[in-house]
Design a protein around this nucleic acid. Sequence first.
DNA 1: GGACTGACAGATATTGAAATCTGTCAGTCC
DNA 2: GGACTGACAGATTTCAATATCTGTCAGTCC
Lengths: 202, 202
Amino acid sequence: MAEALTAEAILVATEEVLRRYGPAKATVVDVAKALGVSHGSVYRHFATKAALREAVTRRWLSAIHEEMTPAFDEGLTAAETLRAWLRKLFENKRRSHSEDLELFTTYKTLVNESSGVVEYHLEHLVGQLTSIISAGVETQEFSTDDAARTAQAVWDATQMFHHPAHARQWGSPHVEDEFDAVVSLVVDGLRYNRVPSATGDA
Amino acid sequence: MAEALTAEAILVATEEVLRRYGPAKATVVDVAKALGVSHGSVYRHFATKAALREAVTRRWLSAIHEEMTPAFDEGLTAAETLRAWLRKLFENKRRSHSEDLELFTTYKTLVNESSGVVEYHLEHLVGQLTSIISAGVETQEFSTDDAARTAQAVWDATQMFHHPAHARQWGSPHVEDEFDAVVSLVVDGLRYNRVPSATGDA
DNA sequence: GGACTGACAGATATTGAAATCTGTCAGTCC
DNA sequence: GGACTGACAGATTTCAATATCTGTCAGTCC
């Protein structure tokens, strides 16, 4: 008798099937075939096809979490840490988009299917941003009375460079400059050493 | 004999047909039927179906241009003018999205079909932003060495509040707060009265 | 007895023949 | 003679039959 069928093995096989056939064509029967079992066996580990896909999505997103965990290098200012984090996120997205567009599209589809998982993922990343900003507030480099709210604002302001809806622009020769311009604008907005404006706005 | 068939009349009829049937079902034959002419007549004014749709798109976008022309009220600071302009854009988009989702979706489809028209539209709006920012630089309220580049950055940073890909979030109870947070962050980034940061970032 | 199979019902997707649409143009009508 | 028509060819879409897939479960096999 072969090794026992594990959830892990099913997830690996599902990823492979998704990669080969794409999200529209990948079936539970294909996954079972790839594993050399009947498709009924797959259902002993995952209640539905949707649950199986969601597990794959969760797996993929948690890899991003690890990859993105911010490095608080002692020699770096908060602005540098923030800039590096945003750049790493952008580079990762852009690379996976340009190097394997098909797979990128596949995961985009999966992610759209399970909004709950995405929400958690986004909260996690904004949480990482919050910790970077909080560290900057601690050293009086940044100023904000609500780090979480400001982190969300930084996230929102940089959507162009991580939200897949904007992926088409990632190939443009101007993106690089636009990224720098937006990040600079945002970092300037965060800075502490600012004299109160003479003409405050409502 | 009835009035002569004009391009204008065809555009109006096309808008109506698009509204009723949606972009997928609206045909040139439908437009001709609505006008009481043969579909061959429509082709005397528009070379292809795509050209007809593009003309409708152009018409719709230029209405937005007029609506968005910024009001340089003497009593307002540049920050207030900028904030008001961004808010008006957001409110318009949000309203047309919530009040007639079907029509909003229809125009989203049309816009995706003719990328050239959109590019011009975006350039026009960023141009309006540029004039607002330039005015702020003139009064020393804002600081930038390249108003056009900065305007593009402001546009990019506020994508969440005007790009249709983010429309789903416009219904969330948090959007209002997120809009304020992003705009405040951006306006802070633009301000002139800033002491050079002690620890500049690379 | 617990992991697995495979046949099954209802739901979903595929396919190809028939219908409709796009774009053209010779001909009709003031 | 210029605005318009309507029949036409090729491209696209629709629709219904057919095939495949999802999820279940009674039964098989160590």
